[in-house]
Design a protein around this nucleic acid. Structure first.
Length: 428
DNA sequence: GCGATCAGAT
DNA sequence: CACATCTGATCGC
């Protein structure tokens, strides 16, 4: 939309202020060293890491903002050109280093963009952040919530990161003669590695850029780029594969550990499981209930998904019970998921409809969304079929099994897009 | 030839 | 399915 005032994790031209929640690349699409549209607000840690990703950026545009403080922006109303004030507060998202949510206050009311977040129900940092948010709202309801709906499905329920890290430790200590490969990204899961290192009194190998990140973040000297110093290596997730592990095992006995909220799947599951049949723990497959929704993910624990590979439910995104807890807390009038698919749309309200029906402002609901409230997921598995037009067609089993609503388009691609907030509601 | 965008894979 | 990331192809300049 033309004439927006502020953009969050969205970098196209036309806003007067831009906000970056964290430095994962799916939130920086469109940002580059040559980007220079307007001031960019982010947390202190994000600003510190920023040059690693965008070395030639015009840093005079960066505005580091303190978590827990209200900041005032004087902007111009896009429609009238008259001055308009927006206030905002960054709040700890407890996702990866530097990650924050942004709470906005203006003529539109209160709007919260969560970015990616994990607020464990009894987590110390999450509780502090939760109190900060409630204090900032001061009894007001949230008018707009832009929610990290990555795992907004009751099928997703995983332990705290501390428990999951303990599972990693147990896998490593039960393989005393193996080399260990752990798949991680360019940012995030540092605390898991720290917990492993301390508990087993062992250093952890990381690749050179990652070591630089660790140093900038001020982690103690437990990370190294010298392979001879440790049998535990954290490697980029994209370089972690079945083939990699098979290759490594020709040299030395090696196991891989994949920390993820999603089971790490070697191959997509094509077969059929009878309802009620239990899976062996070594299986890579998941069982479907008769309505097509997955079971067995609840309280899912360590899973050996391959001869050499273990999947551990360590997630930097909130799982469903945490999302539910969060939504109950902020009582939003309007919710929009920040993660969507171009081929299928996971309506973030779907499994929250009971919670939202009392507070939800029906007049703000996109008709597409309101139609869905109270509807049941589609049942059963379908055969894959080319999508056309607007008529209902059969959908791939993987899509219906997630219990999502289908919006067909030509490409199968996940998108995570930021948002542009304009003067009078109408988010996006 | 370069950056932005997209498809595909891990 | 997709956690986030990289590589390679293609498009427009």
């Amino acid at each position: 939309m033309e004439g927006g005032m502020i953009s969050v994790d969205r970098w196209s031209k036309g806003s007067q202020a831009y906000f970056l929640t964290h430095l994962h690349s799916d939130h920086t699409n469109g940002l580059s060293s040559s980007w220079s549209y307007a001031p960019l607000f982010c947390s202190r840690i994000t600003a510190k890491l920023f040059p690693l990703k965008f070395p030639d950026f015009n840093f005079s545009l960066l505005r580091l903002v303190e978590i827990g403080s209200w900041h005032r922006l004087s902007l111009l109303s896009p429609s009238t050109g008259s001055p308009a004030t927006v206030q905002f507060m960054p709040i700890d998202a407890v996702h990866c280093p530097g990650a924050v949510m942004f709470l906005f206050r203006g003529v539109f009311g209160h709007a919260l963009y969560t970015g990616d977040f994990r607020w464990e129900v009894n987590g110390e940092r999450a509780m502090k952040a939760r109190n900060m948010l409630l204090d900032a709202l001061d009894g007001a309801k949230l008018d707009f919530l832009y929610l990290d709906n990555t795992y907004c499905n009751p099928a997703f329920c995983f332990p705290t990161r501390e428990v999951a890290a303990q599972q990693v430790i147990e896998i490593i200590s039960s393989h005393p003669d193996h080399d260990i490969i752990i798949g991680i990204d360019s940012l995030g899961k540092e605390d898991m590695l720290l917990q492993v290192s301390r508990s087993l009194n062992i250093k952890i190998w990381v690749w050179p850029e990652r070591l630089q990140t660790m140093h900038l973040l001020g982690y103690p000297d437990i990370f190294t780029t010298r392979t001879s110093l440790t049998r535990v290596r954290a490697v980029p997730r994209y370089s972690f594969s079945n083939a990699t592990l098979q290759g490594l095992n020709k040299q030395r006995p090696t196991i891989g550990i994949m920390p993820s909220g999603l089971p790490w799947v070697v191959k997509p599951f094509e077969g059929k499981w009878r309802d009620g049949e239990s899976l062996p723990v070594t299986s890579t497959n998941r069982r479907l209930a008769s309505d097509g929704t997955p079971v067995d993910w609840n309280m899912r624990s360590v899973e050996k998904v391959h001869e050499y590979i273990f999947s551990v439910p360590y997630s930097d995104h909130s799982c469903f019970p945490e999302i539910k807890h969060f939504v109950q807390l902020v009582k939003p009038r309007n919710v929009k998921g920040i993660v969507s698919m171009s081929s299928c749309y996971v309506n973030p309200l779907y499994y929250l409809s009971d919670l939202l029906s009392s507070t939800y402002d029906k007049t703000c609901v996109n008709p597409e969304v309101s139609k869905d409230i109270g509807k049941l997921p589609r049942k059963g598995k379908r055969k894959s079929e080319e999508f056309t037009g607007t008529q209902k067609k059969d959908v791939p089993s993987e899509v219906s099994f997630l219990g999502v609503r289908i919006r067909r388009v030509s490409v199968l691609r996940r998108t995570r897009c930021g948002v542009k907030i304009v003067e009078c509601n109408d988010p996006d």
